Computed example of a mutant assay.
Amino acid sequence: MITDAGFYAAAIPAVILLGLGKGGFSGMGALSLPILALAIPPLQGAAIMLPLLMVQDVVTLWAYWRKWDWSNLGALLAGAVVGIGIAYLIAAYISDAMLELTLGLICVIFGLRHLLTPKDTPPRQRHLPSGIFWGVLTGISSMIANNGGPPTQIYLTPQRLPRDIYVGTMSLLFFIINWLKVPPFMALGQFSINTLTTSAVLMPLAVGAAWAGVLLVRRVPAENFYGIIYGLMVLVGLKLTWDGGSVVLPPLFG
């Protein structure tokens, strides 16, 4: 079990944000792994977070039972299966710095996209090829960094689905994806006594945060929080992009 105080200083807010995101405050969960990656390597953080995600999935799936969009779910899941396979093949060959750079860029692009999108933009229609494409990116980013939310949200959010349908679709999608990731994570040797016991210590907080997200999203307009959350996402993404880029980019140009 990890005993470093610095790790828990990052892990506690990360798990809380993850739970609030799972509970319905879409976007908050995307901040969790970047924060955790400030303390430990991203792939190790992903292994610690996966059991927590799976438990939180049960909480949100129960809260939003049968409130999902089958058409969107099918397209995203088909792509995600392919993405998980791609990520499994490349994960062993990507350095921690490359993961930090990739995750940082995802956060910056997604955060800026939300902040700069006009609020009066008309809803988009479902589009099967786009759903599969973003599903592939969801599977890759979820597998290598437990951060599949941004690609999925980039596809779903412009459709402006009813709140419960939006959250329910995300809940069922990631419930399935997270179970699909278990065999590849085991094959890559990411689970250990150290990561599993650390996950167990954080488990009560993870469950409580997910319940809090479910309860709060039904009482507070989530959009009020988005400006701050996505602004923070951009800042954390820039930090990770700098950290990863400072290692990855110099050899490419030197």
Rank of each mutant, 00 (worst) to 15 (best):
V220H: 14
W242L: 07
F174K: 03
L202C: 03
T117D: 09
T169R: 00
L240F: 07
P204Y: 03
L33R: 02
R160A: 15
G168I: 01
Q159D: 12
V108I: 11
L36D: 09
V236C: 11
W242F: 07
A210P: 06
T3A: 14
I165N: 14
M28H: 05
L238P: 09
T138S: 10
A92N: 11
L116F: 10
T117G: 07
I40L: 12
A187K: 11
C107I: 03
W65S: 14
D164H: 08
L249G: 07
I177N: 15
G139C: 01
L128P: 09
G21P: 06
L240V: 06
E223F: 12
W211R: 11
V201W: 05
I176Y: 04
L137F: 01
P250D: 12
A145R: 02
S26G: 15
L156Q: 03
G27T: 02
S32P: 04
W211Q: 15
P150N: 07
I177V: 14
S130T: 08
Q190I: 04
I12V: 15
F110Y: 09
C107S: 15
E223Y: 06
G29Q: 05
L53K: 02
R126P: 14
G21V: 01
W68K: 06
S71M: 09
P151N: 09
I35D: 07
P221D: 13
S192F: 02
P250A: 08
A39C: 06
A78K: 03
A47M: 05
N194K: 10
P221H: 07
T157L: 11
I84Y: 05
P41H: 06
